[in-house]
Design a protein around this nucleic acid. Structure first.
Length: 575
RNA sequence: UGGGGAGUCGCCAAGCGGCAAGGCUCCGGACUUUGGAUCCGGCAUUCGUAGGUUCGAAUCCUACCUCCCCAGCCA
C-alpha cells in the first residue's frame, strides 16, 4: 500500500472530507512551517516501551505520528523506549513491530532504541557533571522522597548536592563500573529543590540496576530515567514534534532544561489527550493482569483492547485507522463510545466481506414436497456492495437448517419471520410455508415441516406475491460443522475503572463476554476458509476464522453483529 | 492550600468578536431477496457559573465552580 492509498483510505473510511478541519497539532505544524522553525521538516516518532502489547490507545498515537509524517511529507521513527530492563522483553518488541506493520505503517530503515544512545547519554551526563549541573546523591529512595517536599511545601537540598565536580565524576564512573549495589546512589540533575514543579526538584537521571538488558546485555548497570533519555533521544534523531500524552505536560520544562543545558538541538514536545473507550480498560498494568490472572486467554484474546486481540477478533486495520480519524484530537480527557469503533468496523467490512450463510442455532426444516435426494445449485451473490466479487453456487435440498431465532410459534405483531402457516423466502432459494411444528416429549420444537413453492426459485414469485421476510439457511446434507465464539463487552459497565464501592476493575468483568456455540452449520463454500479471513454471515454479523481452526474443524469469532432493528425492538419492548 | 491542564448536544469534536460544523448514538420515514447497506428528515435560542466590555461574545476581561495530572531510583 502506498502512502497515498493509505491516506485516502483512512479519510474515506472516516467519512470525512479530509481536506478541511485541522486539529491543534496540525495548527502548530503549520505555524512552524510558516516561521521556518524546523526548516519545513516534520519528523515524528512512535516511542513505545516494550513492556506489554499495544492496544487501541496506542493505535491513536501511531496513526497520529505516522499519519502526520505522511501528510506533511515527513518521516516517523519507531523507537523503543527501553530504559528499564526489569520490565522489558523481546517478546514485546516483536509484537509491537508486528502490530505497527499490521496497522499499515512503515518505519522504513528508522528502527531505533533508546538503548542505542546509552553511550551518548553517558557522555552528556558527564558533561552536565562537569558543568556543575548534575551530582551523585547517596540519599536512599526514602530520603530522596522526604527531601523532595510535597505539593505545597518546597523540598530541601540533599547534603550531597554540593560535592565537587571531581568527586561526582569519580563516583559516577564507579556507578557505571558496577562498584555499587542497586540503590546505593543515583545521578541527579541540579535544578531547583524549591520549584513548584516537582519534576524540577533535582530529578534522578540514572539509577543503578544490575539487570540484563534485552539488547545491551550486561554492558550497563546504570540506566537512564525516562526524562533523561527521551528528549535526548528525540534530539539525536532530529525529531521536530515530539508528541506525547497529557500527563507529560509537567515534564516539558524538564525536557527543555536538558536540551538547553546540553546545548543540543531542541525538538518541540506537544501533549494530547490519550484515548479512552467505553467498556474497556487501557492501562497496560491492568491488561497484563487480565492475562496473568487468566481472565482472558492471552494478549490476543478477541475480547482484549490490544491490537493483537482486535486482529484475532477480525477488526480490519482500515477500520481502526478510520476510527482514529473519527475520534479527533484534543487536549480534554474524554471517553469515546465503543459504538464508534463498531461503526467503523461494520462500515469497512460491509464493503469488503464476502457474504455467506451460516446457522448458529440450527432448527431442522423438512420440505415435504421437495423430492428426496434432489440437489439444486442456487446462485448467491458474494457481495452486493461489490459486483466484482461475483457469485457462487449454494446447494439446496429437502432437509435444511434455519436459525431458531427465525421461527416463533406465537409471534408478536412485529415479528415477521417464519411461524405456523406463514410464508417466508429462503435467501436465494424458494418461498417456504410452515405447515407443521414437530416437538419432542418435553414440548421442545425439534423440527418444522414446510412446503416450498417450486415456482419461486431464486426468490421471486411469478404471481407477484410478496413475503414479509427473507431468512438464511443451509442444506443439512451439505453443511459444515463449526464452532462460533460470540463475544460481548469484556466489562459490564462503560467505565470499569470507576472504583466506587472500592471494587477492583475485575469485579466488573462480564461473565457473558464469551459464549461458545458448538454445532453451528455453515455453507460448504467455507470449507477451506483460512484463519484470519473475514465473512459476513448474512443477517447475523461479521465473523473471522480463528487460528484455532484446523483441518475439518472450523472456528469463527464473531467480530461484530450487524445492526439489528429486530433486536432493538425486542430490547425496547421486552416480553 | 503549590504547579500544570481541561470544561461546547447522551459520546467524540469544530469554532479563534458577527449571531452554534460534522461524526457516533438515538428517534421518525423511504427503499430493500440481509429487520444489513443506502437514502431522506429530526435531535444545543445555547457554549461550567456569575458579572463586565462591545452595536454584537462560545469566542475578550474579572471572579468563582467542577474535573484531570504531578510528591517512582516507572514510562
Amino acid at each position: 500500500m502506498t502512502d497515498n492509498e493509505l491516506k485516502n483510505d483512512s479519510a474515506v473510511e472516516a467519512g470525512s472530507d479530509s481536506s478541511a478541519r485541522t486539529h491543534f497539532i496540525e495548527d502548530i505544524i503549520a505555524e512552524d512551517n510558516k516561521t521556518g522553525r524546523f526548516g519545513g521538516r516534520v519528523h515524528t516518532r512512535f516511542p513505545p516501551e516494550p513492556n506489554g502489547y499495544l492496544h487501541i490507545g496506542h493505535a491513536k498515537s501511531i496513526c497520529l505520528n505516522f499519519g502526520l509524517a505522511l501528510d506533511y511529507g515527513g518521516k516517523c521513527n519507531l523507537r523503543f523506549d527501553d530504559t528499564n530492563p526489569t520490565k522489558e522483553e523481546v517478546e514485546y518488541v516483536e509484537s509491537i513491530m508486528n502490530d505497527v506493520r499490521w496497522l499499515g505503517f512503515d518505519w522504513e530503515d528508522r528502527l531505533f532504541y533508546a538503548s542505542d544512545y546509552f553511550d551518548q547519554l553517558y557522555e552528556w551526563a558527564v558533561q552536565l557533571i562537569k558543568a556543575g549541573k548534575a551530582y551523585v546523591d547517596h540519599l536512599n529512595a526514602d530520603e530522596i522522597r522526604e527531601h523532595r517536599g510535597t505539593l505545597t511545601q518546597p523540598g530541601k537540598d540533599s547534603p550531597y548536592r554540593n560535592r565537587s565536580v571531581e568527586e561526582n565524576l569519580d563516583l559516577f564512573q564507579r556507578m557505571k563500573n558496577g562498584e555499587f549495589p542497586d540503590g546505593t546512589c543515583v545521578l541527579r540533575a541540579k535544578i531547583d529543590m524549591t520549584s513548584p514543579n516537582l519534576n524540577l526538584r533535582d530529578p534522578v537521571m540514572y539509577r543503578i540496576l544490575h539487570a540484563t538488558h534485552h539488547r545491551t546485555g550486561d554492558k550497563w548497570c546504570i540506566y537512564p530515567m525516562y526524562d533523561w533519555a527521551h528528549g535526548e533521544s528525540d534530539s539525536i534523531e532530529g525529531i521536530t514534534h515530539s508528541i506525547c500524552t497529557l500527563e507529560f505536560e509537567d515534564h516539558r520544562p524538564l525536557y527543555e532544561w536538558f536540551v538547553e543545558n546540553l546545548n543540543i538541538y531542541r525538538p518541540q514536545q506537544i501533549e494530547f489527550a490519550r484515548l479512552n473507550l467505553t467498556y474497556t480498560i487501557m492501562s497496560k498494568r491492568k491488561l497484563i493482569r487480565l492475562v496473568q490472572e487468566k481472565h482472558v486467554r492471552g494478549w490476543d484474546d478477541p475480547r482484549m483492547s490490544t491490537l493483537s486481540g482486535m486482529r484475532r477478533r477480525g477488526y480490519p486495520p482500515e477500520a481502526i485507522r478510520a476510527f482514529c480519524d473519527m475520534i479527533g484530537l484534543a487536549k480534554s480527557n474524554s471517553v469515546a463510545d465503543f459504538a464508534m469503533l463498531e461503526y467503523c468496523v461494520r462500515q469497512h467490512l460491509n464493503k469488503v466481506a464476502t457474504r455467506v450463510m451460516a446457522v448458529l442455532n440450527p432448527l431442522r426444516v423438512v420440505l415435504t414436497n421437495y423430492p428426496e435426494g434432489q440437489v439444486d445449485e442456487l446462485d448467491a451473490v458474494n457481495n452486493p456492495e461489490d459486483p466484482s466479487a461475483g457469485t457462487r453456487k449454494v446447494p439446496f435440498s429437502r432437509v435444511l437448517y434455519i436459525d431458531r431465532d427465525d421461527f416463533m410459534e406465537n409471534p408478536p405483531s412485529k415479528f415477521y419471520r417464519l411461524s405456523p402457516g406463514r410464508e417466508v423466502r429462503l435467501r436465494y432459494g424458494y418461498f417456504i410455508k410452515c405447515e407443521e411444528v414437530i416437538k419432542d416429549e418435553a414440548g421442545n420444537i425439534i423440527e418444522l415441516r414446510c412446503t416450498y413453492d417450486p415456482t419461486t426459485r431464486g426468490g421471486e414469485a411469478p404471481d407477484g406475491r410478496k413475503v414479509k421476510a427473507t431468512i438464511h439457511w443451509v442444506s443439512a446434507a451439505h453443511a459444515l460443522d463449526a464452532e462460533v465464539r460470540v463475544y460481548e463487552h469484556l466489562f459490564t459497565r462503560p467505565d470499569p475503572n470507576s472504583d466506587d464501592e472500592g471494587k477492583d476493575f475485575t469485579a466488573y468483568i462480564n461473565p457473558n463476554s464469551l459464549q461458545v456455540l458448538a454445532g453451528c452449520k455453515v455453507e460448504p463454500s467455507l470449507k477451506d476458509a483460512a484463519p484470519g479471513s473475514r465473512y459476513q454471515f448474512e443477517r447475523l454479523g461479521y465473523f473471522c476464522v480463528d487460528p484455532d481452526s484446523q483441518g475439518s474443524t472450523l472456528v469463527f469469532n464473531r467480530t461484530v453483529t450487524l445492526r439489528d432493528e429486530w433486536a432493538k425492538l425486542q430490547k425496547s419492548q421486552p416480553s
